[in-house]
Amino acid sequence: MKFWIGAALALAIGVGLPLLPVNEYVFYAGYVVLTYVVLATAWNILGGYAGYVNFGPPAFFGIGAYAAVVLFKWLGAPLGVQIAGAAFMGGAMGFGVGLLTLRLRGIFFAIATVAIIFIMETLMVNWRYVGGATGLQLLRPQVELYASYTRMLFAVIAVMAVASVAIARYVQESWIGRGLRALRDSEEAAEGCGVPTLRLKLVACTLSGALMGAAGAPMPMYLSFIEPASTFNLAYTIGSLGSAIIGGMSHWAGPIVGAILLGSLQQIITVTISNEMNVLVVGVLLVVFVVAAPEGILGLFRKVLGRTSK
């Protein structure tokens, strides 16, 4: 019940805040932070629960963004349809990639997912319909209710963030989550306990891909532009993976904490220092957390709470 009260509150703030006379930059920066909440939450379903480290978020995010552009350019589809199409494409790619790569383990799986980014980027660079290497300028449609398109996109990504967290929480607490944890700890023992490991990994990969694809859908309209180099940027890998590691991978709340912390910090550094400094800060934070707190901020909390309760 607590979760649903929190989710309703987050939804109310996410949808209601853009209606208030708040500085536009809050929504401009907040959109990016919430995109990372969706990406990190999606990444954690496969990477955190199942232990399969996916370096390919830009591929899923990118295919979602391009699916949205194609639907917009071809049919003039509204944003809701673009997001649904992007989720379908991301999920389909997750399923396909899973089928081809999930028999690989550890570093081999991780490397295979990196390759997908370059394959997708090369395809888009050579597809003239979506602008090829030079990209495509997009004209935002008129927006109702909200004062600007950016405010509307903030509300949309807030709804998506709440939905993705609810899905991740369901997965974690259901029989799927228990099976994924079992196969993360020992795939052979999990099979020996009747867990259909390949099928569960496919479910996780498809769900994770669908959510990442959906996260990519509003991005072209947010930027009013799309081009392959920035869409398939490895920064999305670092953002999603880094957020989950920093927040904590064993619980659905970890990626939220990590993404809000990391995303906000990046936005502050971008404005006050420089964009390049971002990467350095993320790198240092990742090293610190991997070495000093491998279970992330949530793990640190648990340790502190454990000590005080003794």
Binding site: W175, R181, A182, R184, S186, A190, C193, G194, P196
Partner: peptide, 17 residues
């Protein structure tokens, strides 16, 4: 063992699946 789980949870996996 499923190291991230308690002893009881270890047994819940086969009971469930």
């Amino acid at each position: 063992p499923f190291r991230s789980m308690t002893v009881l949870e270890n047994l819940l996996v086969p009971y469930q699946y």
